[in-house]
Simulated scan of single mutants.
Amino acid sequence: MGISSDPAASAPTTSPDWIEKYLEYVRVERRLAARTVELYAFHLQSLREHADEAKLPLDRVQTAHVRRWMAQLHSAGREPRGIALVLSCWRSFYRWLGHEGLVGFNPVQDVHAPKAGRPLPKALGVDDAVRLAELYDPEADPWTEARDGAIVEVLYGCGLRVSELTGLDVRASNTARGWVDLDAMEASVLGKGSKRRIVPMGGKAAEALRDWLAVRDDCPGLTTARLRDPQAAGALFISAKGMRMSSQAVWKLLRERSLKAGLAAPVHPHMLRHSFASHVLQSSSDLRAVQELLGHANIATTQVYTRLDFQHLAKVYDAAHPRAKAREDKDK
Rank of each mutant, 00 (worst) to 15 (best):
H65N: 15
L254D: 02
S239L: 02
F93N: 00
G157K: 14
H321T: 01
V61I: 12
A41K: 09
R177S: 15
D331T: 02
K315T: 12
L272H: 02
L44E: 03
G159P: 06
L281E: 05
V170P: 03
A71E: 11
L39W: 09
V290G: 10
G159M: 06
Q291P: 05
K325C: 02
D218Y: 02
A184R: 12
V26D: 07
L293S: 13
W179Y: 15
Q282W: 05
D141S: 09
H270A: 07
V304F: 01
L209S: 06
E153A: 07
Y94Q: 01
H296M: 08
R147D: 03
G98T: 04
R131S: 08
Q303M: 10
L102Y: 04
Q248P: 00
L160A: 09
I19R: 02
F105D: 15
D148Q: 08
V215S: 00
V130Q: 13
T13Q: 10
L308N: 04
L73I: 03
P266E: 14
P142Q: 11
R60H: 14
M243P: 00
E134K: 09
K55T: 12
R48H: 09
A326Y: 03
L155C: 15
H312N: 04
A233S: 09
L209G: 03
D329F: 11
R78C: 14
L73G: 02
R161Y: 06
F310L: 13
Q282A: 15
P80D: 05
D128P: 01
L56S: 02
W179Q: 08
Q62K: 13
H279R: 07
Q109N: 12
V162R: 01
A265D: 13
F237G: 07
D110V: 11
D329T: 10
V108E: 00
V152D: 06
R228N: 11
L236T: 12
E153R: 13
A71Y: 09
P119F: 08
R95L: 14
E79D: 12
Y40R: 10
M245F: 02
L313Y: 03
L272W: 02
P322R: 05
F42W: 09
Q248T: 08
Y305G: 06
